[in-house]
Amino acid sequence: MPDLAINQIIGYVIICIGVIFDLFGVLGLVRLPDVYNRLQAATKSVTFGSAGILFGVFVYSGFTSMGFKAILCAIFILLTSPVSAHAIAKAAHSAGIKLTDKTVIDLYQEDKELQK
């Protein structure tokens, strides 16, 4: 390991935390039972992980052009990934994809049937 400045060490720590949360999110994508649960775990953890990696790049490289680009990209991810998540969730529900057997309650379906 070569000599690193203190901000570079902190940057590497943040990048490692981001990589670990990426791994958790992808595990959730594989393990959980239906589309909505997968969407929850994957969107939260992978968004946080990738934004963490980008923030770590900002801390690593300081106030240079690379750092500001990384901050811009992190803000962009945090704003857009929830929007695409609930677009997919709404489309999946209206395409009639079933929730899992463990589901307790589905008020959305009841309201849809009331409106017909």
Binding site: F21, F24, G25, L27, G28, R31, L32, P33, D34, Y36, N37, Q40, A41, K44, S45, L99, T100, K102, T103, V104, I105, D106, L107, Y108, Q109, D111
Partner: peptide
């Protein structure tokens, strides 16, 4: 999310509320 994913028995109780 990390707790739910690592747990071997998947402690979830999903549903859609208003």
């Amino acid at each position: 999310v990390a707790y739910i994913v690592i747990h071997p028995l998947l402690p979830i109780k999903p549903g859609i509320v208003k």
